[in-house]
């Protein structure tokens, strides 16, 4: 199936998504990688407000290259999501609904996704120029000292993504290879 999805996402619509579906995502997406996740969790530990509203939000695991004059951002493909596994359940329990990255997730993350009706969408790893084409605006939110890992607010239009893990825990990284091996040749 192909879905058009807007952020903030309708929770009922997120539940319709199945691993393997295609999604064109539009709206606001925040960037955060390892270091920013660590700081967000530390802020939550101290009872402080995180740098952006987590409830209903979408986070993209990306550290873009510097923007040339003609674009708002440089190459902007996903980084490996597994490095965020230690932090993601905390963010999901605080309201995060959409995670965007590449590669498999831990059982703890899948459990937290099921608990909160969240989805994990895959961008094409290594396709930095292609993924950047759907980003219309980028502005710094905080933690500029982290360089490429700083938190940025992106406005995306029709970002081409694939549902990697759905809100019921179905995992394309398990289902896809199995389906190919049973029917592929």
């Amino acid at each position: 199936m192909e879905y058009i999805l807007n952020v903030p996402a309708d929770t009922e619509k997120l539940k319709e998504l199945r691993a393997g579906d295609s999604v064109l995502l539009s709206g606001t997406v925040y960037t955060a990688r390892d270091a920013a996740h660590k700081r967000i969790c530390e802020a939550l530990d101290r009872g402080e407000t995180p740098p952006f509203e987590l409830a209903g939000s979408a986070v993209y695991y990306v550290g873009p290259t510097p923007a040339p004059e003609s674009c708002c951002i440089g190459a902007a493909g996903p980084t490996t999501s597994g490095r965020m596994d230690a932090y993601s359940p905390r963010l999901l329990d605080a309201g995060l609904k959409i995670m965007i990255g590449k590669g498999g997730r831990s059982k703890a993350v899948k459990d937290a996704m099921r608990r909160n009706g969240a989805v994990y969408l895959a961008a094409i790893g290594g396709a930095g120029a292609l993924m950047a084409a759907s980003i219309e605006q980028a502005e710094l939110v905080c933690w500029e000292d982290l360089g490429c890992e700083a938190v940025r607010k992106l406005t995306v239009r029709n970002m081409p993504l694939t549902v990697a893990i759905d809100s019921e825990g179905r995992d394309l990284y398990e289902i896809g290879p199995k389906a190919y091996l049973s029917k592929g040749e």
Binding site: T65, P68, G74, T79, G126, A127, G128, A129, A132
Partner: peptide, 18 residues
């Protein structure tokens, strides 16, 4: 992936952000 390589050349962008 081939499209991405062509787009990177056209826009003078890196192929990958890493």
């Amino acid at each position: 992936l081939s499209d991405n390589v062509a787009l990177a050349a056209e826009k003078c962008l890196p192929i990958c952000q890493d």
